[in-house]
């Protein structure tokens, strides 16, 4: 199994679903960083990150979301995190990110954030 799998799917013209699976750590975070940077380069600032398949995240992985949030919001978008696993939620809580990010339970709730 690859250490990190990233699948992207455009939702309309201005939103993108990024589905992540595997480990998001100091070895793999650059893949996510590149994927989000690529979206920003295409003026896509509404990002829905499905974290239900992320088994492990470290600060390197969380840092990608932290470092990208302001750009997304300043450009009229946001980064919405969907259904993080217990392990991922734990790290967000330790970092105090649960108050900063929109974290929702499913894709419908995520889509509603952009209506």
């Amino acid at each position: 199994m690859p250490e990190l799998t990233i699948e992207t799917k455009m939702i309309g013209e201005s939103s993108c679903l990024i589905k992540l699976s595997g480990f998001l750590d100091a070895h793999t975070f650059e893949q996510l960083d590149e994927a989000i940077s690529d979206l920003f380069d295409r003026d896509v600032f509404r990002v829905i990150a499905d974290l239900s398949g992320v088994e492990y995240i470290s600060s390197a992985g969380a840092g990608v979301f932290i470092g990208s949030l302001a750009t997304a919001q300043e450009s009229g978008g946001d980064i919405v995190l969907v259904n993080p696993t217990i392990n991922v939620r734990e790290v967000f809580d330790l970092l105090g990110l649960s108050q900063i990010f929109a974290i929702v339970n499913n894709l419908n709730e995520a889509a509603a954030k952009f209506k």
């Binding site: 470290s58 840092g63 932290i66 470092g67 750009t71 970092l95 105090g96 990110l97 900063i100």
Partner: peptide, 16 residues
């Protein structure tokens, strides 16, 4: 953390 977000800083949280 708020400063990290505002400045787009991606690193520097591991030691914390």
């Amino acid at each position: 953390i708020s400063e990290h977000v505002q400045r787009g800083k991606k690193k520097g949280l591991g030691i914390f």
